[in-house]
């Protein structure tokens, strides 16, 4: 209990005083994870929709692969990116290892399958009638597809929030490819690991609280945005 109280106190203090280092670390966490999320959305949403809506050969196999990759162990994702970027690796010449760009790459590898797989599921859950109705009302193929995505948006938003949750809380991959370098690639999660290893439990908890607060704020933002854009949402009433 003592450690918790101290952690809470320390957490508020860190935020209150705008501790330069923690500010830097928090900002980088946000930058890396949000960039990864946007890239994953740009890749995953269209790909997931395409997988759900087109009849390609081996579609089931591809979907199964994507679902499997949704559970890719972060350290493995990190290792793949590491091997790609190491000076002896395929992209070694660009010297991206131990940079935020490398961290974004690893997180995209983790998040894109989640966005893709959950988007595909959300679209597959829809009825044929969504398309039929759009098409009989004279929608172009593009317009009909957009309507399908619109109907699946709850699932897509769930996909995005899940992916964000995964990357912002992820430590194995960013530790490996980012290197946890102070003032350069240290993020909230790697800071927690470091503080824990150094025995600074209350600081670790303080940083953890910052991380959770940020996740909460982002999700709140996404949900309010969604509520504002789409006023009509069904809630199942249970009596």
């Amino acid at each position: 209990m003592e450690i918790l109280v101290q952690g809470l106190k320390e957490g508020f203090l860190l935020i209150w005083q705008m501790d330069a280092e923690i500010f830097d670390v928090t900002l980088l966490s946000l930058q890396v994870s949000l960039t990864a999320l946007v890239l994953s959305a740009l890749i995953g949403v269209p790909l997931g929709a395409a997988l759900a809506l087109t009849k390609v050969r081996g579609k089931q196999v591809i979907l199964n692969t994507v679902y499997t990759l949704m559970g890719l162990p972060p350290v493995l994702a990190g290792l793949l990116v590491y091997l790609l970027l190491t000076s002896r690796g395929l992209l070694g010449q660009y010297e991206l290892l131990f940079t935020p760009a490398a961290m974004v790459m690893a997180q995209v590898l983790l998040a894109a399958p989640i966005v893709c797989g959950l988007t595909a599921r959300a679209v597959l859950a829809l009825n044929q009638e969504v398309y039929d109705t759009a098409a009989t009302l004279g929608a172009t193929r593009r317009q009909a597809t957009l309507s399908i995505m619109r109907e699946a948006r709850m699932g897509i938003i769930a996909a995005l929030t899940t992916a964000l949750g995964r990357v912002i809380a992820e430590v194995g991959a960013v530790m490996l490819v980012g290197g946890n370098i102070r003032w350069s690639t240290r993020v909230l999660t790697t800071s927690i690991v470091l503080e824990t290893r150094m025995g600074n439990f209350s600081t670790a908890i303080a940083i953890g609280i910052i991380l959770l607060t940020i996740s909460f704020a982002i999700n709140l933002f996404i949900l309010t945005l969604e509520k504002r854009t789409f006023r009509y949402e069904n809630t199942i009433q249970i009596t």
């Binding site: 209990m1 918790l4 809470l8 908890i205 609280i209 959770l212 909460f216 949900l223």
Partner: peptide, 25 residues
Amino acid sequence: KSKLTLIIGLLMIFMMSVLAGCAQE
């Protein structure tokens, strides 16, 4: 509504911290 969500969220964070704290002890 949003106030309620905020409170629930903070509660969740708090509970998790308590659990974490207890585990230490």
